[in-house]
Design a protein around this nucleic acid. Structure first.
Lengths: 132, 132
DNA sequence: ACAAATGCAACTGCAAAAGTTACGAGCAAC
DNA sequence: GTTGCTCGTAACTTTTGCAGTTGCATTTGT
């Protein structure tokens, strides 16, 4: 698959679900449509379930369903649910040690956090019911 | 090393160079300070040279030097020189095939391009002489 | 009971990036 | 002009993250 594959898969799947919210879909169906694998689908959609965007049911007639109305799920909800920030400050967790590095990190982090926030804001302006 | 390592290495190095522009530095010196390897340093700084931010000289007293005044080199110059966009649309190059995927990609790409542009704009407001 | 589905853990395979080694070419000092 | 230090570059190895895969327990409807 390509880069940003989890986000692509998640958005793509929810886009389809938005156009027919009552239909229950299995991981296999979704995987086949997306050209991937049921386990990968469950991993990604599992994150969305944790975030309250989807529900899943085990057993014979089980599968995945939207947990809310399509117009109440935004692209930002999906993006945040996967918590893989595109604009990330690297999150060093290493002591800067060097003063130049410290100043740099501070300055760059500020910019990146602003950018990240505006990305989320932009994504929150579109719901998954608007992307078909 | 950590993630975004090339950009970190580049900015860190240029930050130091900005505070003493006349000093010539070797790849080994830089690598030692940054906790990495001379070849990696040359690979990264080579990109900056191609972009006209640095000059290098071979031979006995050779090494790296800023090609311009520190206040004329912005964080955006460095970011763009490495052409590794943080906010990337995935650049699928695959035919979308599915209409939902197509609509999604179009919408998301627009947002990401805007965000990328505003990131560059923000980075261009700070020069490497301001980060120490 | 059985079939169909998720949940989850463990493993493999692959690709991108860092790291490493090696060697050629240029330049200064002696 | 020989020597020593530097960049430039290619080739290889190592590391790492993620998709993909397999296997099995659990749940649920028929």
């Amino acid at each position: 698959m390509k880069r940003n594959s989890r986000l692509s898969l998640a958005l793509h799947t929810l886009g389809h679900m938005a156009s027919d919210p009552n239909r229950v879909r299995t991981s296999s169906d979704i995987a086949e449509h997306a050209g991937t694998n049921p386990v990968v689908v469950r991993r990604v959609l599992g994150k969305l379930r944790e975030a309250g965007l989807l529900t899943s049911e085990k057993g014979h007639a089980g599968g995945w369903r939207l947990a809310r109305q399509p117009q109440d799920i935004t692209l930002a909800d999906v993006y945040l649910a996967l918590d893989e920030r595109m604009v990330a400050t690297g999150e060093t967790s290493e002591a800067p040690a060097c003063s130049v590095e410290h100043a740099l990190h501070k300055r760059v982090s500020t910019v990146l956090e602003d950018i990240e926030a505006s990305l989320v804001k932009r994504l929150s302006e579109t719901s998954i019911s608007e992307v078909r």
